[in-house]
Design a binder for these strands. Structure first.
Length: 796
DNA sequence: GACGTAGCAA
DNA sequence: CTTGTTGCTACGTC
């Protein structure tokens, strides 16, 4: 390799370069290889019980830790490498306990059926310590489960990461934030940091010193045996002790032993996030815990789970992480859709028994949360206030629940008088617990605003998929807290808590005429539309709908593209819902889908991703999707996980992705699936649907039909623009004042009817128009430049 | 209450 | 040169 190229290669990929060097240029590589493959030598190594195989030297860089296997390695389920990467064998007899342990201390990377991968990170270890594991305990258990002795670097990493964790806390007292520790030197160390020192509110004073509250025991509501988590069951009362009992208990303790001391200093409210972030950056992360048992200043909320409400074991597990030392710890709980996130939130609320704030993404889930609270707990309806655009009431007593949306809390502009008043009420009080629903959708900037407005002792984040396509997810760690629990989807579906799902990707060839058009240079949008409207895909969709309707399934078809949605639905004579569908129409369609035996298929646009809840659906077909969004994929799958029929004998839900072969869709599809594959879902690839050609009523079966469809598709985009142009020209002055948004809606409503009437001649006319229109737009300084759109050449 | 608008998110 | 397209909420007006 010439030096220049080699340097370049080294820049590109250091490791690879080195391996290549070793493999290709070294003279003794050949000897090594020969030696490695020599059966006698191999046998020797095997007898020596070393984790070495014929090719291992090739991976030197990635696999430095090649310690000897322990003699009983077969009974130990873990491989732990040098860099904190852990592989867990799910077929091990002690898989369950090993997994329980790993979830606490490491970040799950992928959990496919036989092999699960985890990584030790500072965050995951922080979470472990804050949940109550000691550094020694982590090392001991890892050592016990590992097939080899642990590498020194892993030991150092764990020691280093855990030693400083959990030393300092952030607490809310009398509406003020304090940094608290039982070790004054830790606080002094923090105050030596200029950033933290500048956030201090009581700069002139020394450290505050007071008696530490005694740790109590608490039972999680809704569990079969209260006290199941406690070492001494007799000592744990079945229900949370009333304050009076607590005071009595405290007095006894004070008599018996010396009371531990805690030290603290106060910080400015608005600097809370900065302090938390800074502490994390300097390796002394703060934990946030709420000792609600000893909070006698805030009014108790009269709430308990209904007598017959039982929570499931994984919900209990998640909550036990939150309440393990009888305090409410801030953090995030990850459960798949349909696994009962709401109930976890409600149970947590019943544990804390103080004023609760619930934040949701939409007004609809606000209503759902309210209903769930009434369903599972004995909360009085008047104690739940709903704060949305149409309802701005407050609770009458000293404590209560407010359910609201993120936008309601965070939007600062244009606040109406009523909502300003409610906001003041919210800002002026201390909240026991803040429940953040669908916490993954909340970008950090927005959540910061939330923490300014709502002073809460503890925060509980709930989500199904703790992932975003951007890197904003990291911030949740310091805005809310560490991940407390993450459920395994496969395990839950095996136990029938969520539906079993068969996933398949259906590869559809492009028809020659469509592919020829696709290959021509044109806009990205046009290409996307061509691959969505591919007649073979259409046929596959028709076939699958028919097949599953015969089986008695209820089917949802998703399309992000409204044009395609409308085309598909109309051609197949199915109902469809998209953003433009009126509220009453939506309800009518959903009602029919749920109860009318003749309506078994509905077509949904992106609307179905968030705002609709359809427990009847058992089969899901995706005909187009947005780029490589893993979250969307997971969320859509989640739509059928809560299938009502999931406990029927042998029941299976189905999830199909229709993909046009040899187009960009192939790439996006694999990207989108990454998350589900890691959750253990196997995707089958279907390239041929048996019996498809034999169907007599197959759509677009003649070349003539396909050509007509192609024409339609080719005109579609232009038609959109054309409509816009006409609208703009005819009502130019009117729309100029109302903004581009009105035009958009107008276009969406009007395209469908006129599409087939358009001819090529009119299309040409459009180009002429659009040029002049373009100038006009430029003059007006408008952003929408249609000529540019039209003449845009794809990147490739 | 229907409609339009702005702003935001993916 | 990021860049869409669709959807939702909250609010103001008629």
């Amino acid at each position: 390799m010439p030096p220049k190229r080699k340097a370049q290669a080294a820049l590109d990929d250091d490791d690879f370069d080195e391996v290549e060097e070793e493999a290709l240029s070294d003279q003794d590589t050949f000897d090594k290889l020969k030696q490695a493959l020599d059966p006698v030598a191999m046998g020797k190594r095997a007898r020596a019980n070393h984790a070495v195989d014929a090719a291992s030297f090739l991976f030197k860089k990635c696999d430095q830790w090649d310690a000897a296997l322990k003699p009983d390695h077969a009974n130990r389920p873990l491989w732990v490498d040098d860099a904190g990467h852990i592989i867990l064998e799910s077929f091990s007899p002690i898989f369950d306990e090993a997994q329980d342990f790993l979830i606490n201390i490491a970040e799950p990377q992928s959990r496919v059926s036989r092999i699960h991968e985890y990584t030790l990170t500072p965050h995951s270890l922080f979470a472990a310590v804050s949940v109550g594991h000691s550094s020694q305990e982590i090392i001991d258990k890892l050592e016990r489960y590992s097939k080899t002795t642990l590498s020194p670097s892993v030991l150092v990493f764990i020691e280093k990461s855990t030693s400083s964790f959990g030393k300092a806390k952030i607490v809310l007292k009398k509406n003020m934030y304090f940094i608290e520790s039982d070790d004054a030197s830790v606080l002094q160390r923090l105050l030596r940091d200029p950033v933290i020192a500048s956030c201090r509110a009581d700069a002139d004073a020394g450290l505050i010193q007071e008696a530490a509250p005694k740790l109590g025991q608490m039972a999680i509501p809704g569990t079969k045996m209260a006290g199941i988590n406690q070492p001494t069951q007799a000592a744990a009362p079945p229900v949370e002790p009333r304050p009076s009992d607590m005071i009595a208990a405290l007095r006894v303790d004070e008599d018996e032993e010396d009371v531990a001391q805690v030290h603290s200093f106060r910080i400015e409210d608005q600097e809370r996030n900065q302090v938390i972030k800074r502490c994390q950056d300097i390796g002394l992360p703060l934990t946030e815990e709420y000792d609600f048992n000893n909070d006698f200043t805030n009014t108790n909320l009269d709430i308990d789970l209904n007598a017959h409400t039982q929570i499931r074991y994984y919900q209990e597990k998640a909550l036990s992480k939150m309440f393990s030392n009888s305090r409410a710890r801030s953090g995030i709980i990850v459960l798949p859709c349909g696994a009962g996130k709401t109930l976890v939130g409600i149970t947590a609320a019943c544990g804390v028994k103080k004023s609760i704030m619930v934040l949701c993404t939409s007004a609809m889930s606000v209503v759902q949360w309210r209903n769930e609270f009434l369903k599972w707990s004995n909360i009085k309806p008047e104690d739940i206030a709903v704060f949305t655009s149409e309802s701005k009431n407050l609770f009458p007593r000293g404590a209560g629940i407010i359910i609201s949306t993120y936008t309601m809390i965070t939007s600062t502009k244009n606040r109406s008088h009523d909502s300003a008043q409610v906001m003041k009420f919210i800002q002026d009080r201390e909240w026991g617990l803040l429940i953040a629903d669908e916490v993954h959708v909340v970008p950090a900037a927005m959540f910061k605003k939330v923490t300014y407005s709502i002073k809460s002792h503890a925060k509980l984040g709930l989500t199904a998929t703790l992932l975003r396509e951007d890197d904003k997810i990291e911030d949740l760690n310091f805005l809310i807290g560490p991940k407390l629990y993450e459920a395994n989807w496969q395990e839950l579906s095996e136990q029938g808590h969520i539906a079993k799902v068969q996933c398949a990707e259906v590869w559809c060839q492009m028809t020659p005429e469509f592919y020829a058009e696709w290959l021509k240079p044109s806009s990205v949008q046009k290409r996307a539309l061509l691959s969505i409207m591919n007649p073979r895909k259409f046929q596959a969709c028709q076939f699958l709908i028919d097949y599953h309707e015969r089986r008695g399934d209820k089917i949802i078809v998703f399309s992000d593209n409204v044009y395609a949605l409308e085309k598909y639905a109309k051609k197949l004579q199915k109902v469809y819902i998209y953003g433009g569908t009126t509220q009453t129409e939506r309800l009518r369609i959903l009602e029919n889908f749920q109860h009318n035996a003749d309506v078994n298929t509905i077509f949904l646009s992106k609307i179905g991703d968030t705002s609709l809840d359809l427990p009847e659906a058992t089969c899901l077909i995706q005909i187009s999707s947005h780029y490589g969004s893993r979250r969307q994929e997971a969320q859509r799958l989640g739509r059928i996980l809560r299938a009502k029929r999931r406990n029927d004998e042998g029941f299976n839900a189905f999830f199909y992705s229709l993909v046009s072969k040899d187009t960009d869709e192939m790439f996006y599809s694999s990207k989108r699936q990454a998350f589900l594959v890691d959750q253990g879902y196997a995707f089958k690839v279907i390239t041929r649907l048996e019996g498809l050609e034999q169907r007599p009523d197959l759509a677009f079966s003649t070349p003539q039909d396909r050509r007509e469809l192609l024409m339609d598709v080719l005109l579609a985009k232009d038609a959109d623009a054309d409509e816009e142009k006409i609208a703009g020209d005819m009502f130019g002055s009117k729309f100029a004042s109302t903004g581009s948004r009105a035009k958009r809606k107008n276009v969406a409503r009007r395209t469908a009817g006129t599409l087939s009437e358009l001819s090529g001649g009119q299309d040409m006319a459009y180009i002429e128009y659009s040029k002049s229109r373009n100038k006009e737009l430029k003059k007006k300084g408008m952003k929408n430049d249609f000529l540019r759109k039209l003449t845009k050449v794809p990147k490739k």
